[in-house]
Design a protein around this nucleic acid. Structure first.
Lengths: 142, 142
DNA sequence: ACAATTCCTACTAAAGTACCAGGAATTGTT
DNA sequence: AACAATTCCTGGTACTTTAGTAGGAATTGT
């Protein structure tokens, strides 16, 4: 029961972008250095986030990436879902899976539990914004 | 971000055992039929649960497995941890990992978030007993 | 022209998952 | 004593996913 390194690294990259939000585009080379993630892997992760519409890139010298919305408007849930797909501790309660997925469905005792697990994860991720995560950092670092 | 089929199947098997708690040992062949899990795979899963002290087996004809405690005293958290290991959405916040695991540790903004995710999962699993899961079922089925 | 960057695609080594196969040990029943 | 039902143990294996690497094309400021 682990989130992939995609989600871990991707979230860290998004936090880095949130921290530099007012300072114009941030290059992956910089994030790669500060977060110690290989550049080529980071490129793949950011590509996913770009396709999800969370960041936009500007090419060429002095290019880089920027959030498409302010850190207060982007939740950890959006980032994690973009990188990992729908939250689904088990398939039968995956976000976006219609009822009738399995015949055990009706009256399956464990299904309700997994649904609660999914909801509690979703609640934490969806009520935390990138801004929240940045301020945590500044508190600790200062 | 998924629980393995070990956890899914194992929990279902434990619920089946809880439902037959008063009726003496339940054989894996029966669970295999009712839950539609292959016998040999089920044997492996139950072996894990036995080593964790959650069930005990009695060999020979009319043998089978029984919970070592009543369904009210066994939580889903115990079952899932036995099958999956410590709850750890990411390694650095794994249950039982001491501080200082990674140098980013102090002031890592994402670490706090993953810790909250872990705690919310743990809360759901640890406050749900096998008895709770059985009663859910009976309500639905009746 | 060139250097810095994003963007794209394909590949790969390692690990983990979800099983299956085969048999040994134990115990009730006939 | 034989047998059938069961737990218990070990080892293997096909498959999928993960976590990357490699190489290069396109774009843009200086």
């Amino acid at each position: 029961m682990k989130f992939s390194s995609r989600a871990r690294y991707g979230l860290r990259a998004m936090i880095a972008l949130a921290q530099g939000y007012h300072r114009g585009p941030l290059s992956l080379a910089e994030i790669s250095r500060s977060e110690d993630i290989s550049l080529s892997y980071l490129e793949q992760l950011i590509a996913i986030l770009r396709r999800a519409g969370l960041v936009e890139g500007t090419r060429g010298a002095h290019g880089g990436y920027q959030l498409t919305a302010g850190p207060v408007s982007i939740t950890a849930g959006q980032v994690v879902r973009a990188l990992e797909g729908p939250l689904a501790p088990v398939e039968c309660v995956s976000e976006g899976v219609e009822a009738g997925y399995c015949r055990r469905q009706t009256g399956c005792p464990s299904k309700a539990l997994w649904g609660q697990v999914r909801d509690s994860i979703a609640h934490v991720l969806d009520t935390t914004t990138l801004a929240d995560l940045c301020s945590t950092n500044e508190l600790e670092v200062s």
